[in-house]
C-alpha cells in the first residue's frame, strides 16, 4: 500500500478529474434525457421519430466507439474539442439515451387519469408534461437513475482511452512505473468505491424522501 500512500496527490488529482467528468456529464445527460423522453411521448410524429432514433442508435453503440468517432472522426469535419471536453460530451450523449429510456418508463407509470385531468382543466401538452406528469414520473425513477449515475462513474474511465488523467489513467501510470502494481490497482478500485458507495446511499435517501405513497 506504500505505492498508494506515496502517490496520494496523484490519486487525488485522478479522483477530482473522475468526479468532474461524472458530475458534468450527469447534469448534461439528465437534461438530454428529459428532453428526449418528452420527444418520445409528444404527439408530434417527427419529434417522436427523433427521440426513438436517438435512443436506439446510442444505446446500441459501444461507448468507446462513440468516443473514438467523436475524438478521431469528427475533427475531419472541423469539430475538435479538448480531451476532457470530448469525454464529457460523449459521456453525456451516451448516458442521456439511458436516462431518456428510464424517464419515459417513469412517465408510463403515472396514472392516465393525471394526464386526462390536466387536459380537462385546459393545460396544453407542454404544461401537462412539465407541471403534472414529469414531477410524478421523476419521483418513481430515482433508484434507476441512481444506478445510471453509478454506471456513469465507472464509464467515465473511457476518458483514459483519449489520455485524460482520471483514476484509471492514474492506475495505468503507476502500473507501468512499479514492479508490483497490485497496490495501484487496489488503490484505484478503492477510490471508485469511495465514489459509488456514497452515491448509492445518497440516491437511496433521496428515493425514500420523494417516494410516492400509493
Amino acid at each position: 500500500m506504500g505505492l498508494v500512500l506515496d502517490n496520494l496527490s496523484l490519486y487525488g488529482e485522478g479522483l477530482r478529474t473522475t468526479v468532474a467528468l461524472t458530475l458534468l456529464s450527469f447534469v448534461a445527460a439528465f437534461a438530454i434525457g428529459v428532453v428526449i423522453a418528452a420527444f418520445r411521448v409528444s404527439p408530434v410524429p417527427p419529434l417522436r421519430a427523433v427521440g426513438t432514433a436517438y435512443v436506439e442508435t446510442i444505446r446500441n453503440t459501444p461507448l468507446p466507439v462513440l468516443l473514438v468517432l467523436f475524438f478521431f472522426g469528427f475533427p475531419k469535419i472541423g469539430i475538435r474539442y479538448s480531451t476532457f471536453a470530448s469525454a464529457v460530451i460523449v459521456l453525456s450523449v451516451y448516458t442521456g439515451a439511458f436516462i431518456a429510456e428510464t424517464v419515459r418508463s417513469g412517465i408510463n407509470t403515472v396514472a392516465a387519469g393525471q394526464g386526462e385531468a390536466a387536459r380537462a382543466i385546459g393545460l396544453t401538452f407542454p404544461q401537462t408534461l412539465s407541471l403534472v406528469v414529469l414531477p410524478q414520473a421523476l419521483r418513481s425513477v430515482v433508484a434507476p437513475i441512481g444506478n445510471l449515475f453509478i454506471a456513469l462513474t465507472k464509464n467515465s474511465s473511457v476518458a483514459f482511452l483519449i489520455s485524460t488523467l482520471e483514476l484509471t489513467g492514474v492506475a495505468e501510470r503507476l502500473t507501468t512505473q512499479s514492479a508490483r502494481p497490485v497496490a495501484a490497482f487496489v488503490g484505484a478500485g478503492a477510490a471508485y468505491l469511495l465514489l459509488t458507495i456514497p452515491a448509492g446511499l445518497a440516491f437511496g435517501a433521496l428515493e425514500r424522501r420523494v417516494a410516492v405513497k400509493r
Partner: peptide, 16 residues
C-alpha cells in the same frame, strides 16, 4: 441490479 445500465431501463419499462 444496481449499476447495470441496460438492465435498469428494461426493468423499469416492464414495471411500467
Amino acid at each position: 441490479v444496481a449499476g447495470v445500465e441496460d438492465l435498469t431501463a428494461v426493468a423499469v419499462a416492464a414495471d411500467a
